[in-house]
């Protein structure tokens, strides 16, 4: 009796310990592995990326901005910079630092890998938006040039990452920066979002939660020091200027139509028809290609046929074939309802 109890308790304890150690991602074993990886080299690579970011945005890199970006102390930042200077990757410039040609090349290499990884995670894995950047930050430091090339090939040598940032070519070429921060728009101006900054995470999560994404058309309604009110996909959104500054936009002509909000495929009842207007940007990678291959492209007329006995997948008549789509997929297909031609 007591032996049995004891063995049960021992088994329960050892299982718990094993789970704590090996639980994917959060387990101690994985944390320890990540801890090992966070070496001097990683800090240096991150510093180079920070320097390049500042330069691309026309800002000056100081010890302070570096310490803030990397979440390290001022002393550590100073010794890091000293080391980078020794290596000839960084030099002093006015009151801050700037990259040497050599340093810029290295920074671009890192940025390329980072953005390729984000594109890969977005398109070819089931991970959510807020995880892409974190994962990429972790994986980027252990990639060889060869692995980066293979990764690029695997996602179709993309030219933009999912946040709308251009991906440098292997030779380190990057198109010049386009657009302005959203905060520079005046009321009534219409613009297209071209970039959603993914750092800091809290701000990014807020932008994602509001459904803002590259490729979206917006119009500013009101602007004050405390808040910017805008309309996007037919919905009104209010952002604090600090948050809005993380969106880069390109001005469009005033008359440009603002589309939406749209109905989605889920709105159709049995026998009702709709014409596809667009596929939401959330539908990406293999999922998007698959749905398009099945014939769901702008202009396709779809009629709803039946719901399954279980309630969720719904069968639609798409270009002559009956295709079942899950609710989560149907939600990504924006349509305009067609009146039944009697």
């Amino acid at each position: 009796m007591t032996t049995q109890l004891a063995s049960l308790i021992i088994a329960a304890l050892s299982t718990t310990v094993l789970l704590l150690i090996f639980w994917p991602d959060a387990g101690y074993f994985w944390r320890w592995r990540r801890g090992l990886a966070s070496t001097k080299r990683v800090l240096m690579e991150d510093a180079l990326k920070h320097l390049y970011d500042q330069e691309y945005n026309g800002l000056i890199c100081t010890l302070r901005s570096l310490a803030g970006s990397l979440a390290i102390g001022g002393d550590e930042a100073a010794s890091l910079m000293a080391r980078l200077q020794e290596l000839g990757l960084v030099r002093l410039h006015h009151e801050g630092f700037e990259l040497t040609a050599e340093g810029r090349k290295e920074a671009l290499r890192m940025i390329r890998i980072h953005r390729l990884l984000e594109k890969y995670l977005a398109d070819e894995t089931g991970l959510s938006e807020t995880e892409w950047h974190k994962r990429a930050e972790r994986l980027e430091h252990n990639m060889t040039e060869q692995a980066a090339r293979e990764l690029a090939a695997a996602v179709g040598n993309p030219s933009y990452d999912p946040h709308g940032d251009p991906i440098p070519t292997p030779g380190g070429k990057l198109p010049p920066k386009k657009g302005v921060p959203l905060t520079e728009l005046e009321p009534d101006e219409v613009a297209g979002i071209i970039h959603v900054e993914d750092e800091p995470n809290a701000v990014y999560a807020q932008l994602v939660a509001e459904g803002l994404h590259p490729g979206m058309t917006i119009r500013v309604l009101e602007k004050s020091a405390q808040r910017i009110q805008l309309i996007a996909d037919g919905e009104e959104i209010i952002l604090a200027p600090v948050v809005a500054a993380n969106l880069t936009v390109e001005r469009l002509a005033k008359g440009e139509e603002i589309k939406g909000p749209f109905e989605t495929l889920t709105a159709l009842g049995v026998g009702e028809k709709g014409r596809v207007l667009a596929l939401s940007h959330h539908c990406r990678g293999q999922q998007r290609r698959r749905i398009m291959d099945l014939g769901v492209i702008p202009g396709t007329v779809i009629s709803m046929q039946m719901t399954s006995a279980g309630g969720d997948p719904t069968a639609y008549l798409i270009r002559g074939a009956t295709i079942a789509l899950r609710k989560s997929q149907a939600e990504m297909i924006q349509i305009e309802r067609l009146k039944e031609a009697a």
């Binding site: 293999q286 698959r290 291959d293 099945l294």
Partner: peptide
């Protein structure tokens, strides 16, 4: 296959 473009 439905297509030849999707790299499955």
């Amino acid at each position: 296959t439905y297509s030849l473009l999707s790299t499955s």
